[in-house]
């Protein structure tokens, strides 16, 4: 059986909110080491890869590997019944045809219990190859969100250009064009606001901005976001979940002629 108590239940709410526009149904794979999820959007443009290690939970127990087929919209609805400070406990037995969710506020004066039906999701398991990225940008997650939203007002595409001086986001639409350039910050100041660029070679790629805006809904999970690019491969957009996992998105670029 699975019994996973998440002291910071809000983390689960944030994760589910961040992926709900991208995936409708997904398998949550539970093993002794934690919970993972991997799912592509229906148009095969974006892939979500979640890792929540057992350290995220206290306690965590998973005797045997379990796959929980979850309708994300249903989970969003049920999680709306929890408070932001609630401890969330997930419980499932074998065979996993339902998932029990228990919400407890810090006061412990209220316990709410929900049970959701699980689905049988036929999902191909994909292996994400290790990629040597040509450009890796670490920047404030809130800044990335703002830039994506700003670029979306002009165009459905955004071009990201990484050089050793900085990273430039630009958009060109029928109404006009715009760009935001972030300069590489000093190495001494390593606050969440600092932009750092690790460059093997200057890299430019163009992406659908609508997906990036969706990814950036993960902003509340982490202070920083990591963008990793190697043309013409998919870009990696990564949010770390404290020291106990990550939420990664892979996005296929626009095809360069």
């Amino acid at each position: 059986m699975l019994e996973a108590r998440l002291p910071q239940g809000a983390v689960l709410k944030k994760i589910v909110d961040a992926i709900k526009e991208i995936v409708s149904d997904a398998n949550f794979d539970c093993t002794d080491s934690g919970i993972t999820l991997q799912a592509m959007d229906s148009s095969h443009v974006a892939l979500v890869s979640l890792l929540l290690t057992s350290e995220a939970f206290d306690p965590y127990r998973c005797d045997r590997n379990l796959t929980l087929g979850i309708n994300i919209k249903t989970l969003v609805q049920i999680l709306k019944c929890s408070g932001n400070d609630d401890v969330i406990t997930l419980r499932a037995e074998e065979p996993a045809d339902t998932l029990a969710l228990v919400f407890e506020p810090p006061s412990l004066e209220r316990i709410s219990e929900y049970e959701m039906k699980l689905m049988d999701i036929d999902n191909e398991r994909l292996e994400i190859p290790d990629t040597a990225y040509h450009a890796e940008i670490t920047m404030a997650a809130s800044e990335f969100q703002r830039i994506c939203r700003d670029m979306q007002t002009l165009s459905e595409s955004v071009t990201i250009e990484a050089t050793k001086e900085g990273v430039k986001f630009s958009a060109e639409g029928e109404l006009g064009s715009g760009s935001v350039t972030l300069k590489q910050g000093g190495s001494i100041d390593s606050s969440a606001e600092t932009t750092t660029i690790e460059l093997v070679q200057p890299t430019t790629q163009t992406f659908s901005v609508k997906y990036l805006v969706n990814f950036s809904k993960s902003t509340s999970l982490a202070g920083q976001v990591r963008l990793a690019m190697t043309a013409p491969l998919p870009m990696l957009v990564e949010y770390k979940i404290s020291d106990c996992g990550h939420l990664r998105f892979f996005l296929a670029p626009k095809i360069d002629d």
Partner: peptide, 14 residues
């Protein structure tokens, strides 16, 4: 407008 690429072929099915 540049066409949108897809992820197929990049990730191996295991």
């Amino acid at each position: 407008v540049a066409p949108q690429g897809r992820l197929d072929g990049f990730f191996k099915v295991t």
